[in-house]
Write a protein that binds this DNA or RNA. Structure first.
Lengths: 265, 265
DNA sequence: GATCCTAGTCGTCTCCCTGACGATAAACAG
DNA sequence: CTGTTTATCGTCAGGGAGACGACTAGGATC
């Protein structure tokens, strides 16, 4: 049989959906937008949209991310096409002032036949990690958008929390789990921080994403002892009440060996 | 703007491509089929095909896997729709006689606009791990198929090895890298083994996938000491020249904590 | 049958990482 | 000056992993 018959193929709609995560007020938050039309009118949903005929999947995700948040994506590793104009994560983190940058990577693809009641839609979900935005008003267009704590969306306890449209709760759960596991063995937690940050801020990122408390002394020893994870930027800060802290920026290392251990047992 | 306009959406073709890996003669091998028509006529390619209008992505991958190898897929964790008739990996490994079973999971999605010269094709790649098949003749239909060592396909040294069709070399590379990293922190290496196997056979799986030599004594201590990884089945074997080895089957554990460490530094 | 070879299994020793936690440093609030 | 808060440095014990010796139990060879 002809495996790629160009004339007779079942047509699908292809979209990208975004799990955009940030840490706000010691809580892991996701960007959600309110749907203005059926189906799921009035429900909160992940931002996303159609992939255009002439753009790649990562490009579409970066475009949607920029439209929703103004963040310039730094397309990152993983698979698929990496357009030449998007630098790879390893180089980007070091080079640019990443004030408006965010980590972006492909998450997974969701294509259940009935996931959209109107037609066959395959959605390539992407995961974006962003520092806390100075402008909490994300939506670029008229739809309302907000940062919602993921615990609120997924329902950490008994109830399922705020119901999300389509299968977006599952997508969000997968994205959160990916972020949780990935900061274990990569330096990705720095994507939640501004370009300069303290060890304490980085520790609060880990604590917020994992939902645990970490020992400040062991954490400090670990992150400053891992080669390439952090490089001191020279300055110090006096943000909150205590002793001024040394400022760091993300080093060149992308993988952490040995990894950060998530306490749990 | 209307994000999900059902009437005007750009149509895409959606396919699944399979990275099917096995270990044969102390080498990691991938299943490739020869293309009988243009483009890339005569090239080796990954098996795959169109997703049908009424089937999910995992279903399509399982169907293609069955068509090409006769393996019954055991759809595994990760995201996306898990049809009710496909058991999840954790339960399946324990329960069934897994003689004809293989691990199957979604890998990543590739959608560069020009990846197929004829039309816009988005391919949802899947990764399958199978034990060495008794019947080395995989193809179900007329096309020729073979198990090729991945080193041969990807060109571990200077040259790029056998050229693969489309972007299949990149997909294969991603699949191999996924397998290499995943056997570190999961019990997935047992998917390369028959239902009963020895510690030595499992060690040779790790050695073949990673391309390194492991200390038999430390490996034995590690795998037998990890709770839930292996359960003794009672029997022993006298395969090759040495002392008979104890037989095991895969235990219920899916994640390895602490992980197997891939020597490298 | 004695010997060699091969592969499997058990132990030991050391090093390094981690978790637990005490102690000191440097800011600010009263 | 004293208490509070956060940052940073040190110490100590336990566990896991690498290096490697030793023993076991089969077949092959002489």
């Amino acid at each position: 049989m002809s495996r790629y018959d160009p004339s007779a193929f079942p047509p699908f709609a292809v979209t990208v959906d975004l799990v955009v995560l940030t840490v706000r007020e010691h809580a892991l938050c996701a960007l959600v937008v309110r749907r203005g039309e059926p189906p799921f009118q009035g429900y909160w949903a992940l931002p996303g949209g159609f992939v255009r005929p002439d753009e790649g999947l990562g490009e579409a995700a970066a475009r949607e991310l920029a439209e929703e948040t103004g963040l310039r994506a730094q397309a990152n590793h993983t698979q698929a096409e990496a357009p030449a104009d998007l630098v790879r994560g390893e180089r980007a983190r070091g080079g640019h002032a990443q004030g408006a940058g965010a980590h972006l990577e492909q998450l997974a693809t969701y294509g259940h036949p009935q996931r959209d009641p109107r037609m066959r839609v395959v959605s390539v979900a992407h995961l974006a990690l962003a520092p806390d935005l100075p402008a909490p008003r994300p939506g670029g267009d008229a739809r309302s958008a907000r940062w919602a704590p993921v615990g609120e969306l997924l329902g950490n306890g008994a109830e399922g929390g705020v119901p999300l449209a389509f299968d977006h709760a599952a997508i969000l759960a997968d994205g959160v789990e990916r972020a949780r596991s990935k900061i274990e063995y990569s330096s990705l937690a720095t994507a939640f921080c501004p370009s300069e940050f303290t060890v304490g801020e980085l520790r609060r990122v880990y604590e917020s994403v994992w939902g645990v408390a970490l020992d400040p002394r062991n954490f400090h020893r670990k992150v400053t002892g891992t080669p390439g994870f952090l490089v001191p930027s020279g300055g110090t800060t006096t943000r909150q009440g205590g002793r001024p802290a040394q400022l760091f920026r993300a080093g060149g290392a992308t993988v952490l060996n040995p990894p950060m251990l998530r306490p749990e047992a």
